Amino acid sequence: MTTDQWGVRVPTGKGEEVRQALLREGALDLTLKVLHDGDALVFPVLSERGDTSRYSFAEQPDCTVLPRHELVGGIAIMQEDDPVGAAAILASRPSLHTVLFPTSEVSGEFRTREYVVLAGTDTTRTEVVEHGHRFAVDLAGAYFSARLSTERQRLAEKTREHELVLDMFAGVGPFAITLAPRAALVVAADLNPRAVLLLIENMKKNRATNVLPLLADARRLDAILPWKFDRIVMNLPLAGTEFLPEAFRLVRPGGTIHFYSLVSKEGEHLGRIRELGGVEVTERVVRSYSPGQWHAVYDIVAE
């Protein structure tokens, strides 16, 4: 039997890399077979994304369907408080050590949430391996999204070796450290002391000697930093809009701002961006977030 589903089409040579990324995100539909389409592979995914189209997939025979979950390193995060399902997830992959259920939304100025352990080791700490980098993560102590691994690679490919880069909401450093091998200097700022400690740990893990960690409020960066930046990353999707004026003060003329936000309509922030001085703006869907809402990125060239 075949099923019509959303799919991500990639060159065969990138197949395993993309498959692993989709597994980490919890986005891969494991009930359907990967489609071979000429010199490309098409992976079935659970929801529409910026890079998806509809395809017909063959169903996996005798497939055991696990409860919906997201993988972050050795931790699985469930969408429901289901200890039986958690035990099944834990048994399904030898690499897993813990299954968590979030008991709160991401909130507060440190962007953290609370969890209960449903199965496995009583911890919220793990290590994430992503495109050759290793990140120590504590899900209860600092924000981290495995779902942005493809975005981090996209920005790394755009970064040039002479660039000064600012990550305004660095967290444990995944964007900053991914961009560092291609940049002259990356300033990685965050207000959360726990996040900055993990960032420093991750700099050591990845030998990122050109990353400058900074414990600071993004509202004060213009007063602290002596530079204008070629590229600025703004990954604060729930509240980033209020920091856009600060980003425009810090970017050099012709520099680029990558602004991530949760939106409910196309072009939601275009008016404000152009008002502040965005002369070229490209809006892309990164992933669906909830019914009627999605995670978007605005790539902005400043005047």
Rank of each mutant, 00 (worst) to 15 (best):
F101R: 01
A21C: 02
D51E: 14
S95L: 11
E109P: 15
E280P: 13
K14W: 13
F175E: 06
D82Y: 00
R24F: 12
K14L: 12
R272S: 05
R147D: 01
L28K: 05
F144H: 03
R252Y: 07
P213F: 14
P44A: 06
E303G: 07
G73V: 11
D82S: 01
S56R: 15
G171W: 11
A183V: 15
R134S: 12
N192T: 12
A218F: 09
V301G: 04
M168F: 09
E283G: 12
P61E: 08
E283S: 11
R9I: 07
L191A: 11
H131A: 15
L30D: 09
E151I: 02
A156S: 13
Q153Y: 01
S149Q: 12
A239E: 11
D299N: 05
G292Y: 08
M234T: 07
R125K: 08
L199Q: 05
R54A: 10
R49T: 15
Q153T: 02
L148V: 02
R182V: 03
H258C: 02
R111F: 13
R287A: 11
F135I: 09
L32M: 11
V263R: 02
G85I: 00
P11M: 07
A208I: 10
E201S: 10
T126F: 10
A180N: 10
S95F: 09
E242L: 11
A216S: 14
E48T: 02
V137H: 09
S104E: 10
K158I: 10
S290I: 06
D81E: 14
V187S: 02
E163R: 00
I273E: 03
V117W: 04
L139E: 01
R219V: 03
F169S: 01
P174W: 14
M78W: 04
G73N: 07
L270S: 06
S290F: 10
F135H: 06
L238V: 11
L262Q: 02
V106T: 06
H162T: 14
V279R: 14
V72Y: 05
A156L: 09
T159R: 00
K205G: 02
A189D: 03
P67L: 00
F43E: 07
R125E: 15
R182T: 11
R220P: 00
V172G: 06
L46G: 07
H258M: 01
Y115K: 00
R152T: 02
L155Y: 01
I300A: 07
T178R: 08
L90M: 04
S53E: 14
K158F: 13
G271S: 10
D122S: 09
V263P: 00
A58M: 09
T209F: 10
R9N: 08
L46E: 05
P226N: 04
G132L: 05
V251M: 01
V18K: 03
R111L: 10
R93Q: 10
K204R: 15
N206C: 05
F144Y: 15
A302I: 03
A218N: 04
T150C: 01
R147L: 03
D217I: 12
P61F: 11
E48N: 02
L148A: 05
G141I: 03
H295R: 03
T121D: 07
F43N: 04
H295G: 01
